[in-house]
Simulated scan of single mutants.
Amino acid sequence: MNFTDEPILKVINLNKQFGPGCEKCNGSKETLEKNFCPECGTVYACQDISFELYKGEILGVVGESGSGKSTMMECLYFDKEITSGEAYISTYGKGEVNIFSESSQKKRLIKNNVLGKVYQSPMQGLRMNFSSIGNIAEKLISAGNRNVGLMENRGKELLEKVNIPLFRMKEAPKNFSGGMQQRVQIAKALSNNPPILLLDEVTTGLDLSVQANVLDLIKEIQRELGISMIVVSHDLGVIRMLSDRTIVMLNGKIIEKGLTDQILEDPQTAYTQQLVYSLL
């Protein structure tokens, strides 16, 4: 991977707070307990998050529960409004348009054509009562496709890619196991060939053997399609298996970033050292 290329995604000073803030915490973040203001109760979930994602790269984001990594993903996919910040995607508006300041209509366009997301809970990413192929068609229709034959062919192709037997394509995901539901979600997220795929804790709650299958599938898709991915996990084992570079988050901030191997072999902060030692 050539990091001298222009990044496909550039995020600059992304901030997300829950609550109005007060004189004390607005004046200085030093007064916070972790990422929480004891005075007014405001939570600073993301604080000045900046990073780049390159073409064909898997970027890992690791951190404990409450570190802000899932909030960051929700902001990137417009599931939550940001407080402030900028993000640029090279395949959208020549990479010169801050996607966060776009209209809700344009954000929908980005969501349907440029980004794909796989949620930790399949209930968030799938309609459990639709058929599996219907879930994929829904995403295609959102992006403006109207040709039923083409959509059916695309749906079959994707279900085969994620190892869902085609005789079950008319079945609803509510009848599937957790691992199969995640694979249907991945197929749905890939339906419009997005250049960027966001994966949020996709193996949490799955049995180890099922986890391994899902991770192998993600690797295979990335190799085959050359998609750029951001993979969030609290499990460093998952990050080690998938990612080229890694960001470590704690209390809403990035505390360390670098090549994954580098971070695993020579962690710089006490928190990352603790994470790495717990993996050994």
Rank of each mutant, 00 (worst) to 15 (best):
T204K: 09
M123N: 14
V97T: 10
V276D: 13
V118I: 13
D235M: 02
E256V: 06
V114S: 11
L76T: 10
V11N: 04
E224G: 07
T272Q: 04
E171H: 13
N175Y: 13
L76Q: 05
L109Y: 14
E86T: 10
T246L: 02
M72P: 08
F176N: 11
K94P: 00
L53W: 02
G144E: 11
L158V: 06
D200N: 07
E52W: 00
S278D: 10
F36V: 07
L280E: 15
F100Q: 11
K55H: 14
R245S: 09
E152W: 14
L197V: 02
R108E: 09
K16T: 01
G149E: 15
Y88M: 12
I164C: 04
Q268C: 00
E81R: 15
T269R: 05
L59H: 02
R146S: 15
P165I: 05
E138W: 02
Q105Y: 12
S50V: 00
S142C: 14
Q47S: 12
N15L: 06
N15P: 03
S278E: 14
I247Q: 09
K16D: 01
N147F: 09
I164E: 05
Q222I: 01
L208C: 09
A143H: 02
K219D: 11
V202T: 14
M169S: 14
E201Q: 03
N13Y: 03
Y119F: 15
A270C: 08
T260Y: 03
Y271T: 11
Q262K: 15
N113L: 12
K188I: 14
L158Y: 08
L280G: 12
L236T: 03
S101D: 15
T91Y: 08
E201A: 10
Q211R: 13
G205K: 09
G134H: 03
T203F: 08
L279T: 11
N15W: 07
Q185N: 14
T204V: 09
A270D: 15
I254R: 00
L279K: 06
A143I: 02
N192L: 08
V62D: 04
L199H: 06
L126T: 09
G116Q: 03
C46H: 04
K80N: 13
K80H: 12
E81C: 07
K253E: 13
